[in-house]
């Protein structure tokens, strides 16, 4: 009787072990398959479009007339690029300076304040950023445009970029803080004992050492910014045009998808075109994401 229950126990134990290992393996395979499933899904859905138009035409034509079957993505791509690069141009110096300040100069209590600030900023939902953009940044930009003698509703590329910049700041900043923290203190010691001032040490030694990390943090920021949807959509104006200035409205790719998907499915090729937009997002974002990680992995040791 007793030996039976021990046997039973053993069987149950092995079974549990095998079952859990099996489920773990399933999860593992799911993760490995996921990017490919996504990519193939997007390719399949947008392949209809490739049948009718060449890739070059899709990317570089600026004629967007879905009703007559003309799908030129150029205005959307340009809008996305504008918004992304202006936002990174705003966020990059702010993040770099703050990261240096927090890791090299700041007193303990500043750190104690900043850690939750960064965390909360990172956790605020996109749509809240959008509301904030509408309440504060839109009127602000409209006013600023006035100073330059440009009339603008405030719903513009610049507004989208500012909102986006604030959104990616916590993300980029966290990476940069980590980058500066991992630099060994002995490098500072070496530089200081050669008669360098603290600032010279930061500028010529630490930032040089951090260089690959800095570049990749910006790259990751770009990948984050490029796909951001709701917040940008709410403030960027959404007019199909090639924007000629930062006070003009733009229409980035994610906004295109969000505004139209699932609605005008009766127009032929329309959902295929929107899937193509999603494909562009996927490819660009993954490129920047992987590129940045490659930089930090391969160049960190070489400097």
């Amino acid at each position: 009787m007793r030996s039976f229950s021990i046997l039973n126990f053993k069987v149950r134990r092995t079974l549990r072990e095998n079952l859990s290992a099996f489920w773990m393996k399933c999860c593992y395979l799911l993760i490995l398959a996921m990017p490919f499933i996504l990519l193939i899904g997007l390719l399949l859905k947008s392949s209809l479009l490739f049948g009718e138009h060449s890739l070059m035409e899709l990317i570089f034509s600026s004629e967007w007339k879905p009703l007559s079957g003309k799908f030129g993505f150029f205005p959307f791509i340009i809008s996305s690029l504008w918004v992304t690069f202006i936002s990174i141009a705003i966020a990059a110096p702010v993040c770099l300076l703050t990261a240096i300040y927090l890791t090299q100069y700041a007193k303990r209590f500043v750190l104690k304040i900043m850690q939750p600030v960064i965390d909360i900023l990172a956790g605020i939902p996109s749509v809240i950023y959008g509301v904030w953009g509408i309440i504060i940044i839109v009127p602000f930009v409209s006013k600023v445009a006035g100073w330059f003698n440009v009339s603008s509703s405030g719903y513009s590329i610049l507004t989208g970029a500012i909102v986006l910049a604030v959104m990616i700041i916590p993300f980029v900043l966290n990476i940069l803080i980590e980058v500066y923290k991992t630099i060994p203190i002995e490098l500072s010691e070496a530089s200081l004992s050669l008669g360098a001032t603290k600032w010279e040490t930061i500028k010529k030694v630490l930032t040089r050492k951090a260089y690959p990390g800095i570049i990749s943090s910006f790259g990751l920021g770009v990948s984050r910014a490029f796909g951001e949807t709701i917040a940008v959509l709410m403030v960027v104006g959404n007019v199909v045009q090639i924007p000629s200035g930062i006070f003009q409205a733009g229409y980035p790719l994610p906004a295109l998808i969000a505004n139209n998907y699932g609605e005008m499915l009766s127009i032929p090729l329309y959902d295929s075109a929107l899937m193509f937009a999603a494909l562009i997002l996927f490819v660009v974002v993954t490129f920047f994401n992987m590129g940045s990680r490659y930089i930090i992995m391969h160049y960190e040791k070489k400097i």
Binding site: P184, E186, L187, E189, A190, S191, L192, S193, L194, G195, V205, R208, K209, Y211, I303
Partner: peptide, 15 residues
């Protein structure tokens, strides 16, 4: 500090 050269436990060449 310039009057004192420092040699650390393990080498830390500048980048």
């Amino acid at each position: 500090r310039k009057k004192m050269g420092l040699l650390a436990q393990s080498p830390y060449p500048l980048p």
